[in-house]
Amino acid sequence: MLRKLFKYDFLAIGKNMWIFTIIAICLAVVACFTFNGIYEIGNFIGNAPSDRDMALGVSLMMAAVMLFALCLCGIIAYAVIGMIMILVRYYSNFFTDEGYLTFTLPVKTSTLLHSKILSGISWFAIIGVVVVLSFVAVATTIAAVTGDSYLWEVSDYYTVEPESISVIGEIIVGMTETISFVIAIIEPVLLMFLCVTLASVIARRARVVIGIGLFFAVNSVTSALVTAGDVFMSYITTEYFGYNYYIDTATQSVFYILLYGSILVVSYLLNRYLLKNKLNLI
């Protein structure tokens, strides 16, 4: 049953999202070409034979920069639209008239929730991959066109190499970072679903908007906790062990796992309880 539910959910979200995904990929391609154009126009302006040519070049440059910015905004908008689509599907299938069919299917409430989580995470991952690859493509184009290596210098800046390589340290850091990465993908989807469920239980109108508001409120609090926790953990580990790449990185990941893992578990359990016991379709 879970497989069937997942199929319907995934396809229902995909009905519109495939089109937006193709548009986002096209926007990334256009952004790459546009940047190339911006560079060429820059050269043209630098060697403009007359004021008239320079004015034309500046106008073209402004149009190209605007197009480039629009493309990047479009890719970000794609991510936002994707999240809204996942939320709307969840809300409409559970809390509008569709809920009368959904909740009378011969399946457990938890199975219904699992199908939504799986389809939500799948789409969240697809959106993430498309957005990241789009920006990587744009960044690579910028680096290739300009011939600058500053992008790689920036990434080098954030990669702190350990003074001595430890196999156990590498394994622990790898494991904790992988787990925290997986949790980072699942947690926002579960938290968003919980917020919409809560909004649907307590409010009669504008439930999706209230749900999104709740989500951002909880996220602001957790972000503040993460920042404070990062500083505190770094201080404690440095104080006790001196600076050690492995201990510092692993401690940070464990902190993320504990914080976001707790939110993930609470979101899942509370959502399941509410759907099972407090559902009230209007």
């Binding site: 008239d97 569709e98 009378t104």
Partner: peptide
């Protein structure tokens, strides 16, 4: 739910 067929008062499509 496997043995109950339910027709609500509003369309659920």
């Amino acid at each position: 739910k496997a043995v109950v067929s339910y027709l609500p008062e509003r369309p659920y499509f």
